[in-house]
Simulated scan of single mutants.
Amino acid sequence: MTRQLNLQLGEDGASAERLDTLTGYLRQELLDLDVDDVRRAQGGAAPPGTRAVDIMALGGLVVTLGRTAGGLKDVVAAVRRWLARGDGVRRTVKIEIDGDTLELSEVSATEQDRLITLFVSRHARDEVDP
């Protein structure tokens, strides 16, 4: 069973260009993991009169998880590393899977651990060991 994980990245004060660049960096990092695919989220049809077929949803990624037991945990760990690289600028990431959403930002590492453990335990049961 293929499962998708939706990520929505944010950084306080970031321009659209910067957010697009940051999204690209995280996408590249996630592609190095044991996941089936990572693509930019689509924002829907372009407004009338424009040439674009689809608009990219700024800061959005769609991760297609593989069937390995560590896939979800590895993605969440990569997101935490991305958050930590904010150099004092507040970053946020919303992680959504199967209608369940987890938002990570400026909470303590202990609180992040607790929230992540709860979130992953609810969804990791569908993954299998290789």
Rank of each mutant, 00 (worst) to 15 (best):
T50C: 14
T50E: 10
R51S: 15
R51Q: 13
A52F: 08
V53E: 03
V53C: 04
V53M: 06
V53T: 09
I55F: 08
I55A: 09
G59V: 04
G60S: 09
L61I: 04
L61E: 13
V62C: 12
T64Y: 00
G66P: 02
T68C: 02
G70M: 01
G71N: 05
G71P: 00
L72A: 03
L72Q: 02
K73Y: 06
D74Q: 09
D74S: 14
D74M: 00
D74H: 01
D74L: 01
V75M: 07
A77Y: 01
A78G: 06
V79D: 14
R80V: 14
R81H: 09
R81K: 15
R81N: 13
W82Y: 02
W82A: 05
W82G: 07
L83C: 05
L83M: 08
A84C: 05
G86D: 01
D87Y: 12
G88H: 04
V89H: 01
R91K: 05
V93G: 10
V93M: 15
V93K: 10
K94E: 15
I95G: 10
I95F: 00
I95D: 05
I95V: 14
E96M: 05
I97V: 08
I97E: 10
G99M: 11
G99A: 06
D100G: 01
D100F: 02
T101R: 14
T101I: 13
L102R: 06
L102H: 00
L102G: 04
L102I: 05
E103C: 11
L104H: 07
L104C: 12
S105G: 13
A109N: 14
A109E: 13
A109T: 15
T110W: 03
E111V: 14
Q112E: 09
R114W: 13
R114V: 12
L115E: 12
L118W: 05
L118N: 03
F119Q: 00
S121R: 04
H123E: 12
A124Q: 13
A124N: 11
R125A: 12
D126I: 12
E127S: 06
V128Y: 03
V128M: 13
D129Y: 02
D129P: 12
P130C: 06
P130K: 01
